[in-house]
């Protein structure tokens, strides 16, 4: 699918950057004429993915998080969140609702929310090398006012 526009941000895995990441993603996604609900979905999915990096990829250290956003032909937003952290041993298990290794500050709903709020989600991970989460969100076509 042809790329029409893209941005990339790299920032350290500090929890103070969660708000920045979702805010930046929403600003970029606004080009797609999204509704407030759709923008809220993008913010939520990005917040979950970035928080996963902070809590799970770099539990005892600070490492880089790469956020890449692409607008694709046909009105689709691709969100990619990548870390170079410790990786996920069993991706399928991690995607199950209520599964968490993050203690009681996490509800184990991160992947479930990401999946619910986007149209597709792929997770690639290698233990010791990092994890890449790629989500796509289609913008519903709306009739323009005359």
């Amino acid at each position: 699918m042809k790329e029409l526009n893209s941005v990339r941000f790299e920032f350290p895995s500090l929890s103070a950057n969660e708000g920045f990441a979702r805010g930046a993603a929403a600003c970029f996604a606004a080009q797609l004429d999204m509704t407030l609900t759709e923008l809220g979905d993008v913010k939520t999915a990005v917040s979950e993915a970035v928080t996963n990096c902070i809590v799970h990829a770099y539990p005892d250290s600070v490492g880089p998080i790469l956020l890449r956003l692409r607008i694709l032909e046909g009105g689709e937003l691709e969100i990619q969140v990548k870390d170079r952290g410790r990786g996920i041993e069993d991706v399928e298990r991690a995607r199950q609702p209520l599964f968490t290794t993050g203690g009681d500050e996490r509800g184990g709903m991160g992947f479930t929310i990401m999946e619910s709020f986007t149209d597709s989600m792929k997770v690639r991970s290698k233990v010791g090398a990092g994890t890449t989460v790629t989500m796509r969100k289609r913008v519903e076509k709306r009739r323009k006012a005359r």
Binding site: R22, G40, K43, T44, S47, E48, T51, D104, E105, R106, G107, M109, G110, T112, I113
Partner: peptide
Amino acid sequence: KFMDSSGIAIILK
């Protein structure tokens, strides 16, 4: 105005 799954963890707690 905004909440992610961290809010769910708080409510459950």
